Structures are given as C-alpha cells and as structure tokens.
Simulated scan of single mutants.
Amino acid sequence: MKVKTGLDILVKDKNLQSEFNGKVALLCHNASIDSTYTHAVLKFKEIFGDRFVKIFGPQHGFSTDVQDNMIETNHTIHPYFNIPVYSLYSETRIPTDEMLEGINHLFIDLQDIGCRMYTYIYTLTLLLEKCIDKDIQIIVLDRPNPINGIDIEGNILEKAFESFIGLHPIPVRHGMTIGEVALMHQNLWTKEKINLRVIKMQHWSREMFFEDTKLPWLLPSPNLARAESTCTFPATVLFEGTLLSEGRGTSQPLEIVGHPKIEAFSFYENQLVNSIKKSKLKGFVLRPITFLPTFQKHANAICNGFQIHITDKKIFNPWRVGQFMMRELYHHLGNDFKWKEPPYEYNYTHKPIDIINGSDKLRHWVENNEPVEMLDSFENLEAYKNQLNEIKLY
C-alpha cells in the first residue's frame, strides 16, 4: 500500500486544515511534494491563501540548487508567490526574530535521508530551540526514513566534535523519521519544550526502504538524484573528509569513490578481493571504474576507483563498508592520500574527517591499519536504542 506523507494527510483533511487559523510559514525544499508531484508551496497557497506568508529553505536552498558545503543561499522574494524566502543556510543557520515575526504556525516538510551527516535535522532542531520563547506552533509533516527505521549503525557522536553536520549524540544511521528527530529533541536535547506537533504518515513501517513506500523520489540535495544513493551515502560521505573524489561532478555522485593515482583493476585483483573476503562484509560489490569529475575535487582529471553496488540491502552495512574502503585506500595510496584540512561546516579547528565521523578515533583506526573487527568497539548503541524506543511513532 502506498505511504501517505504528513503533507498528503494535510492536503486531504479539511478538518485538520481548519485547526491552523493564524499566519502560516513553511520550511521546505525541492523534495517537498505530495504523492501527485505537486510542491508543498502550491498546496499551502491553495489551502491557506493570504495567510501563507513566509517560506524558509535549508542548506542547498529552497530550490535545492546550491552544490557544496559552506556555499550560502541569499534571502529573496519569490518571483511568483511574492512572499519572502528566508535561507537558513546563509549568514545564519538559526532563524532570526525578524524572520519569525508574525507567524502563528510554522510547518516543516523536509525529506531527510536517515544519516547523521545530513544537515536538515539540525536546521530542524536549531529552529525548535529558537522557538522556545516564541508563541509559534511547530508542525512537522513527517516523511519516510529512506534507509529504513530498523537498522542502526555507526558510532555515537562525541560532544567535542559537534558541528552543523552533527549536533546531537546519535549514530550514523539513526533510524528515525524527521518527526521522530523532533520528538527526541524535545525529550532529550532541550531544557524547555515548545508547542510541537507531528503529523504522522499512514502505511509507513520501519522495515521499509524508500522504494517500498511507492512514493516519488525527488532529490533532497543536488547529489542525491536517486533513492539508491541514500543507501551508499553513509559510506561515501566519509570521503568528504579526504582529497579523494566521492563522485561529485559525475552522474553517480555518492555511489563512487576515486583518485587519479589509483589503478583500480590491479588494486582490486591484487588486494581488495582478499581484504573484502577477510572483512566478512556482505551485501555489496565494489566494481572498478574510471570517471571524470566535471567540478569539485579533481575536476577534469581522470580518476579511477570503485562504484558500490548493493546486492542485498538487508545485510549491507554502509558505515562499515565506508570505513573499510577508507582504510584500504589510505594504505594503498600512501603519500598520495590526503586528509582534507579545515574549515568544514563552519568548524575551523578539527580535521573534517573527525567532524564527519564525530570522533578522531576512526581516523586513527584507519591510519593504524587496524582490523575491521575493531569497528565493533566504536558502536555502543544500547542506550541510544532505548531512547529511540521511547519516541517511536511507528
């Protein structure tokens, strides 16, 4: 049965719509559509008319057209809707008092991807914090976690490594919907609660990957054009902390990794085949490839590397596969492997790889060429799973 998102529920329920009588704002992006591919802004204009007064956009912009980290989006007046569009990835990532003035109900409709290193959940929680002393109701229109709500994977973020891609002590695959993130924030991460409401989905269950929902996929950020890419993202996002390409500037971003100094076939045959077998990691194949990035790292330089093909999502552990690939490539490339230097996501102190990992321990694991079995010691998830059980909506 096709899943109905929080937006779908709102669009179809006139009684629900009538509960929001004041001025309305919406935080949304390119993927904020209903099941008919109609954008939420069009639906809000239809439902709320002149009471719909402001739009907010997260990282990559309301139009989801801005590519890279720390590339900010300007505030503007929308040329068609003739209402302000405020960027929450601009000179500020927290809405100002002026931005929130005159709003009674602020709806949030963002497609998250279920991974800690993705900023939309922090745009959400910073907004919740800002509204502690505001008479504004926050309504989260819930959407699926595209990599399912059962599998929890990766280390818990350490407080010393907090950043805009990791503000809260959660694992890499956190297993929450964006509505559940809001509830966990209210339960655990704030001293004062706000007027929060989550409009639940219908027919979504935790074991679902995105293709199981039968919903249309639109890219929530410029390099996630395929729902399949969300499953490899927890592996390939790690390479943002290096000078290897994670495929930006190609037609397969965040599914491939490479570098001009790799000869992929010989590396695969002579080393990786045995290393993969020894690691006991399953549910994927690494295919040697050649690619040419057209922008970002190694733009217009031929790279060799690997595409991650998922053969069984149920046993594929992307965080572990990403750490494994990092270790193998670090020692294969030697002096040609470089960690990216700060700044990264407005952190000017720590190495970007440590910000991404939420710890420096994993970088040391890579550098010391330690066994895959040691990754178990970085995962201490029982307390987190108990916290998740307290706020689950589904």
Rank of each mutant, 00 (worst) to 15 (best):
D112T: 03
D112Y: 08
D112Q: 07
I113P: 01
C115R: 00
M117W: 09
Y118G: 01
T119D: 11
T119P: 15
Y120H: 15
Y120F: 15
Y122V: 06
T123N: 15
T123H: 13
L124E: 03
T125P: 12
L126W: 04
L126Y: 08
L127V: 12
L127M: 15
L128Q: 12
L128F: 12
L128Y: 11
E129V: 04
E129Q: 14
E129K: 15
K130I: 04
K130M: 09
K130S: 07
K130W: 00
D133H: 14
D133P: 13
K134F: 02
K134I: 03
D135K: 15
D135W: 10
Q137R: 14
Q137I: 07
V140E: 06
D142K: 03
R143Q: 04
R143V: 01
R143E: 07
N145Q: 08
N148K: 02
N148D: 11
G149E: 02
G149Y: 00
I150W: 03
I150L: 12
D151E: 04
D151T: 15
E153Y: 12
E153P: 12
E153A: 13
E153V: 11
G154S: 07
G154A: 14
N155D: 06
I156F: 08
L157D: 00
E158S: 14
E158N: 14
E158H: 15
E158C: 07
K159T: 08
K159C: 04
K159Y: 04
K159F: 07
A160Q: 13
A160K: 15
A160C: 10
F161Q: 01
E162L: 05
S163C: 02
F164M: 14
F164S: 14
F164P: 04
I165Y: 10
G166A: 11
G166V: 08
G166T: 10
H168G: 09
P169F: 08
I170G: 13
I170R: 12
P171R: 06
P171A: 12
V172K: 13
H174M: 02
G175K: 02
M176A: 12
T177S: 14
I178S: 08
V181R: 02
A182P: 03
M184H: 11
Q186H: 13
N187G: 03
W189S: 06
T190R: 14
T190D: 09
K191I: 07
E192D: 13
I194Y: 12
I194K: 08
I194R: 03
N195E: 09
N195G: 05
L196E: 05
R197K: 14
V198A: 05
K200F: 02
M201W: 02
M201P: 05
M201R: 03
Q202Y: 10
H203S: 09
W204G: 00
W204K: 03
W204H: 01
S205I: 05
R206M: 04
R206Q: 09
R206T: 07
E207V: 06
E207Y: 10
E207S: 14
M208A: 06
M208S: 01
M208T: 00
F209T: 03
F210V: 01
F210A: 02
T213M: 00
T213C: 00
T213S: 01
K214D: 11
K214V: 05
K214Q: 15
L215G: 01
L215T: 04
L215P: 00
P216D: 06
W217R: 02
W217A: 00
W217L: 01
L218E: 02
L219P: 13
L219A: 12
P220Y: 05
